[in-house]
């Protein structure tokens, strides 16, 4: 019952509202059919936001799935338990920081005049590479995504480390006896046996990439010139800044459809790719 009231009813209402034009001041509304969805098709910022979500997903898969898996394998291959524990903790620490705090932290790191990054580049003789990282369209989105990778990388690594620990050590010992090197052990033992976790991480990563909001709002609010808008921030701006709540509801429907597809994929994947030892 609670699920129906707090999840399904709002979703159904959102779908209904996306077919209306609302005036929050007078409380009046007008049925406009699919007009808000037609408007989506011709809205350049919507498509740019969708592309930014896509870029976010791609880079997150590269760093937080592929990169995290490699790092987890390297950490778990260390002989020293003490080092393994220490490294897991070190990489996990950024994940314990809230996205809002991390976003603010990186905002100041990227600040063009006072920020640490530009000062660091100048200190090592790379002054030519200094940029107003969040202040220009060409680097702002990548800057935000980089912060997000820093923040989420350790968490993914920890999950992969747990998955690797579940692999029976006899398999690695047998491979070593057969003279198989660490790279091939990773490719032929680790990767296949953590595929369940990998699949799950890919799906969670894509789903998360289409729900990004906090870091963008904190670091750029979608600017400059809407270059860092993602679907959730464009939804927010359409509703709360442009007073176009019907259109915001249409964007929300798109986000819902995308995340629903990914969630269904997750269900399907976890049923089919279960790994048993």
């Amino acid at each position: 019952m609670l699920l129906a009231v707090f999840v399904y009813l709002p979703l159904a209402q959102n779908l209904a509202f996306s077919t209306q034009e609302w005036d929050i001041y007078s409380g009046t509304s007008e049925f406009v059919g699919l007009e808000n969805y037609e408007k989506l098709l011709g809205d350049a910022v919507f498509w740019s936001a969708l592309a930014n979500n896509g870029l976010y997903a791609l880079l997150s898969i590269a760093f937080q799935v592929a990169g995290a898996l490699v790092l987890a394998a390297m950490i778990e291959s260390l002989r020293s338990m003490r080092w393994r524990k220490a490294l897991r903790a070190i990489y996990f620490v950024p994940s314990a920081i809230s996205l809002t705090v991390a976003g603010l932290l990186f905002y100041f790191i990227y600040e063009p005049n006072l920020g640490m990054l530009n000062h660091l580049l100048e200190a090592v003789g790379l002054g030519a590479l200094t940029q107003p990282w969040l202040g220009q369209e060409s680097t702002a989105m990548v800057g935000i995504i980089a912060m997000s990778q820093w923040q989420g990388f350790g968490y993914s690594t920890l999950l992969f480390a747990v998955a690797i620990q579940r692999i029976p050590s006899e398999l690695y010992e047998a491979a070593a006896i057969d003279g198989i090197g660490p790279v091939r052990r990773f490719l032929h033992v680790t990767v296949p046996l953590v595929r369940e976790m990998t699949g799950l991480m890919v799906i969670v990563t894509i789903s998360g990439a289409f729900q990004v909001f906090n870091e963008v709002m904190v670091m750029t609010s979608g600017g400059p010139n809407n270059s860092t808008q993602v679907l959730a921030t464009w939804l927010y701006r359409s509703g709360f800044v442009r007073n176009d709540f019907g259109y915001a509801a249409a964007i929300a429907t798109v986000i819902f459809v995308v995340t629903l597809i990914v969630a269904l994929g997750q269900l399907w994947y976890t049923k089919r790719r279960r790994v048993d030892f």
């Binding site: 707090f6 709002p10 979703l11 799935v65 969670v204 998360g208 729900q211 709540f245 986000i255």
Partner: peptide, 24 residues
Amino acid sequence: MRRNRTIPLAATAAAALIALTACG
């Protein structure tokens, strides 16, 4: 990848807001 779930689902937030509009 871990993601903050308090902001999205955006659909829910927008719907809740607009639902409140209808009420108020």
